[in-house]
């Protein structure tokens, strides 16, 4: 495998030819915020938080979905990017009903951490306050759509790692909702193996163990990558 040399935030970085900017940056200790990205799953390019500036193109590029190139000069932390990231996190908070004070994931929530990381102090946008359901028809797990950010990490974990595809999205725009099977209650979704990978993958408190209470839920998203790695070819 050939290697490429590029510059990220002024730092010379060497990366494998098939690596993304995100991977290269992480190896170099440069942190780019992400939400829909999860190690072990395919890239979605949907949250737009990892957008970076690449010198020579006016368009912002998603770090998770852009391959490194020789001599590439990447900027991950400019004024413009910081403003965009803060605005995107605010938009997510305004979209559904994210009430940390009563959330199972509070203190262990990627969205909460992102808000702190991007310096979000308040939300400038109108809260859309949609009416969202909570589905606790499954024996072990529940989903609270109020906390879902539509990152589809559960959809991809279920499809790509468990190989089942119980989850998908119905509707469009802000009307998009996660569904199980052909929009039946989770407990009636015949394809679900109750493996819990969706729970591992969820960045917020949307998918939770039934019976857990405020701030009790600790996701283990890295276990998805561990499962994928364990299955792949040994070296």
């Amino acid at each position: 495998m050939s290697a490429k040399t590029l510059t990220i935030d002024g730092q010379m970085v060497s990366a494998g030819a098939d690596e993304s900017i995100l991977q290269a940056a992480r190896e170099a200790g440069i942190r780019i915020p992400t939400l829909c990205h999860l190690d072990g799953l395919s890239e979605m390019g949907a949250c737009r938080l990892c957008l970076v500036e690449v010198v020579g193109t006016s368009k912002l590029q998603p770090a998770c979905h852009t391959s490194v190139a020789e001599g590439m000069e990447v900027r991950t932390d400019t004024e413009r990017l910081r403003a965009h990231r803060r605005a995107i996190v605010e938009l997510i908070f305004a979209e559904r009903n994210h009430v940390c004070a009563v959330c199972v994931a509070s203190g262990h929530c990627e969205l909460q951490n992102l808000a702190a990381a991007v310096g979000m102090t308040h939300v400038r946008y109108e809260y859309l306050a949609p009416s969202c359901a909570v589905d606790i028809s499954h024996a072990r797990f529940g989903i609270d759509h109020n906390r879902c950010v539509l990152c589809t990490r559960c959809v991809r974990a279920c499809d790509e790692v468990e190989g089942v595809h119980t989850w998908d999205i119905a509707g469009r725009g802000t009307e998009s909702r996660l569904i199980t099977d052909l929009h039946v209650p989770w407990g009636e979704a015949a394809s679900c193996t109750s493996c819990g990978k969706c729970l591992l993958a969820c960045p917020t408190g949307a998918i939770f163990h039934r019976g857990s209470t405020v701030a009790e839920l600790e996701h283990e998203p890295t276990r998805i990558a561990a499962i994928v790695a364990a299955r792949s070819e040994r070296w």
Binding site: A46, C47, R48, L91, A94, G171, T174, E175
Partner: peptide
């Protein structure tokens, strides 16, 4: 645009609603 946004990426999904508002 708000009605036709597919809902995949955050800026279009939520941004168009906020602009419309």
């Amino acid at each position: 645009c708000m009605d036709e946004s597919c809902g995949k990426c955050v800026p279009c999904r939520v941004g168009t609603v906020q602009m419309h508002h």
